[in-house]
Amino acid sequence: MRYFEVKERTDIGYVMRLTTIEPTTINHRGTGWLRSYVNPSAQESIVDYLMQNQRPMVSDNLRKILDYYEQEINDTRVYTIYKGAYEKGDHENTPDYYFIEPRSIDAVHEDSVRDHLGNLESLILDQSKLEYARIFCVKGLKENRWFITLEIAEMLFRNHITGFTVEEIETR
């Protein structure tokens, strides 16, 4: 099985970002709904995957695909509200977004290289611990990194999901 890390693309020019994110209601899990005001300009692309406040955020389209493969993903909905000179009619395709938190798996292989402070320099995943895992985070990583299998990467490319790129991760 091949695994890929999902990353945000930086080579696609101007991308619409959410400016302020405010909590509205909090549910029993403490996650709640959020709202954000957007004012996309004509030059900005609306993409399906963003890193917002250093957390992965996905559009409704992307979330549906991820949901199909893995139901144990915690997500927090962010409603986007139009504010500014542009009317909604011009930007009716702007999606609501979701902060996602895939489940964490302790899958760092012992051959992974660490520096003297214990930070990972090169990550190698342990194949034996990833059986049946398709979308996941890895325990012990400081950064907010998440991974998918080849099957899902193909699905994302087929469905023209934008704003992301993938990098293959070695497994043993």
């Binding site: 696609i12 020019g13 692309s45 993409v47 490319f157 023209h160 934008t162 704003g163």
Partner: peptide, 12 residues
Amino acid sequence: IPKISLERAFYE
């Protein structure tokens, strides 16, 4: 036309 639309056309 943004780059993402070009890529969409290619992958289609």
